[in-house]
Design a protein around this nucleic acid. Structure first.
Lengths: 154, 154
DNA sequence: TGAGATAGTTAGCACTCATAACAAAATGCG
DNA sequence: CGCATTTTGTTATGAGTGCTAACTATCTCA
């Protein structure tokens, strides 16, 4: 498992990125990839992907939600949500209940097992989030969130 | 093109994201997606993807680079770089020259056409980058970059 | 010289994201 | 009411990206 980093030079130091290294977009990608990788690893014990956790969190916060709404707030295409909910339902974590007055839609809620798993996953998520917050350094969290929100609304 | 946002409520306001909305990771993803979408659109006239521009920038900054090195600094698998360079070379933007003393490797450099296209693409990129920087608001760019770097190194 | 490492390549798999088309049900307007 | 339109969930499918394994040619070095 010896890394091949000591070739003839340590590269990252010597090679210019042509201005990329001072670009918000480029580092934004690296940061996002790292965060997702870290969170995915943290959720591994629960066999949950990042989106799975997001879905569970949203359902917990507002039970009875329809798939369409979850897709909107999480920016997931509703067609792609089908498989996600399918799997969560097959694992007995989420229930597709009836929506009174609309037989097309499902009212999503957590099962007892889903609630239990979510609690454990939330602990892992909190630990992960702490690492991210620590990395913020001087940057104020609220200002960072505001900035990211504005960027997201480009 | 009338958005279907006025259903019975404007959702994003009413539905809780279960804490996700105050999470750096979640907004990081939204921001990154938005930035890439915006940059991709800005590069559309030049038929370049984001990675293509990155590759051209790196080659311009340090001509004679090998594919392996580019892959390392840009975090692109060297197997995936093959196709990218193939296309750039087929379009006459990049040249695979010989590396003196190593017949396995290629010394990459920009052609005149590549240099010309890059200049135009750089202008578009600068305009895009300005939008991103404007969105930073109070947050200092240098501090933002430093924070993103630390997050990327999680 | 010969074993092992390295550069580039090829092929294939997996995951995410997006679109189109569809059935069933709801909505709304004449 | 009746019928066109919209909406929800679903299915199928394609584009894009990323990762791994295996292979050839070449280089390195003991």
């Amino acid at each position: 498992m010896i890394e091949a980093r000591e070739r003839k030079d340590s590269i990252s130091e010597e090679v210019s990125l042509g201005g990329l290294e001072t670009t918000v977009g480029f580092l934004l990608r690296l940061a996002q990839v790292a965060v997702f990788k870290d969170l995915l690893a943290a959720l591994k014990p629960f066999d949950l992907r990042v989106t799975d956790l997001s879905v569970l969190l949203v359902i917990e916060a507002t039970p009875g939600l329809q798939q369409r709404v979850i897709g909107e707030v999480l920016r997931v295409q509703r067609s792609n949500l089908v498989t996600i909910i399918d799997q969560l339902e097959a694992r007995g974590l989420v229930r597709r209940g009836p929506v009174p007055g609309d037989r097309r839609a499902y009212a999503l809620s957590l099962t007892v097992a889903g609630e239990a798993l979510l609690q454990k996953a939330k602990a892992a998520h909190a630990q992960h989030d702490r690492k991210v917050l620590d990395a913020l350094g001087k940057v104020d969290k609220a200002q960072m969130l505001a900035a990211l929100e504005r960027i997201a609304a480009l």
